Amino acid sequence: MSSEVRELLAVIKLFCDRMTGPGKDFDKTLSLDEAADGTELMGKREAVNALLKP
């Protein structure tokens, strides 16, 4: 298993255990329609992580 997959699984476990919340890990919240904008923001280093909500 790659280190990226292990890291993702660890973050998912933290969410499931309610040890972390979106505000601690995501600096942008966007709608699903804005997913491409989130990718662009991260590419420009204007966002570290973008949380997509329905």
Rank of each mutant, 00 (worst) to 15 (best):
A36R: 14
T20Q: 03
L14M: 11
L32C: 09
L51F: 12
S2H: 13
S31H: 09
M19G: 13
R6A: 14
P22A: 11
L32R: 08
G38V: 04
K28R: 15
C16D: 10
K28Y: 05
S2M: 10
E7M: 10
F15L: 13
L14C: 06
D33P: 01
L51K: 06
F15S: 00
E40Y: 02
P22R: 12
S3K: 12
K53I: 15
L9F: 04
D17P: 00
N49R: 15
R6M: 06
F15P: 00
L30K: 11
D25H: 12
G21K: 07
E7Y: 12
E7H: 11
S2W: 06
E34Y: 04
E40S: 04
D17N: 12
P54R: 09
E46H: 09
S31M: 12
G43H: 09
I12H: 01
G38F: 01
K44D: 05
G38N: 08
P54Y: 08
L9A: 08
M42G: 04
L8D: 01
E46I: 00
T20C: 11
K28Q: 14
T29Y: 06
D27I: 10
K28L: 14
L32Q: 06
E34V: 05
N49L: 02
P22L: 12
L52Y: 04
S3R: 12
P54C: 08
M42F: 03
K44S: 02
V5R: 15
E7L: 13
L51T: 02
K24C: 05
L52V: 13
P54S: 10
G23S: 14
F15Y: 13
T20I: 13
R6N: 11
M19D: 12
V11C: 04
G23N: 10
L14N: 08
E4G: 09
S2Y: 03
V11K: 03
D17E: 15
K24T: 09
P22F: 09
L52D: 01
G43V: 02
K24V: 10
A10G: 08
R18C: 02
L14Y: 01
L8S: 09
L32G: 11
G43E: 06
G21N: 11
D17Y: 05
G43F: 01
F26N: 03
L52G: 06
L30A: 15
